[in-house]
Design a protein around this nucleic acid. Structure first.
Lengths: 131, 131
DNA sequence: GTCTCATATTCCTATTGAGGAATATGAATC
DNA sequence: GATTCATATTCCTCAATAGGAATATGAGAC
């Protein structure tokens, strides 16, 4: 059942955080690392888990892979993401993620705007990139 | 995290069905068996799982054990149960459960009303009880 | 006490998934 | 071609859980 698959995706904290951040807009893997403060393998695996189950979509842009919520989410997904937003509103972990996202925002504006990659070379995340 | 625990409870179809039915009101284990059409062990184990995590409460009344949603559910639980109701609305499995619940309703009215057990002896569920 | 009914628990097997270390892939630069 | 950067995958171990069969528990009837 579709609905069970959604809940299987939601029952891990890392994935909850990924989805919660994704509601704000598309993001690439290295930015997720920055925002969540988790190692690359962990982020990448959980994103793959979500992609395999249709909760997110990915698109390669040069060296980066941009993840986004599906263009046409199901009613169930929409409903549950709204519920998640509601539940996360007053939670410290989720609030911290949003705060870190805001700090990074200038550096990753081109991703969030959906524009094609403009500035090849090093990714602007990593230590010191957004400080 | 509280929220993850809720989602862990929701990521199994049997538990989803139990909770969905419970929104209609308290029920005893044998009625769950009737409504879901699943074996006793399965029902009992999943109810225990939910109880251990605080999603349902139980109360013994003679031979029966009545399960109910918590008297004071958390904001997260309330929110997610509402979401579940919304998602389940047009789903065949959940609709069938509700239909079976209605057929049984006359037989288990005393449970749903929260009254103390009136009619000791055999439980009125089981084959032929509600037909 | 015994018997019966409703429910819970134990024991088992099989599957799933999390996490990390190491390695592989794919694209861009030189 | 080689190198570098971003990301994905493989291999491993450990823990959680689903499901069923069998058995245990707890309460009421007699």
């Amino acid at each position: 059942m579709e609905l069970v698959k959604i809940y299987e995706c939601l029952c891990d904290l890392t994935r909850l955080r990924l989805l919660h951040v994704l509601v704000q807009g598309p993001l690439c893997v290295c930015h997720f690392q920055e925002v969540l403060g988790e190692p690359q393998v962990k982020i990448s695996k959980h994103l793959a888990y979500l992609r395999d189950r249709g909760l997110v979509e990915s698109e390669r842009q040069g060296n980066w892979v941009i993840y986004a919520l599906p263009a046409k989410p199901t009613r169930e997904l929409t409903s549950n993401l709204a519920c998640l937003q509601d539940c996360a509103r007053e939670n410290a972990v989720f609030k911290r993620d949003l705060a870190r996202l805001k700090k990074i925002e200038p550096a990753c504006a081109w991703v969030r705007a959906g524009e094609p990659q403009k500035a090849p070379g090093q990714c602007r995340c990593g230590p010191g990139a957004a400080t």
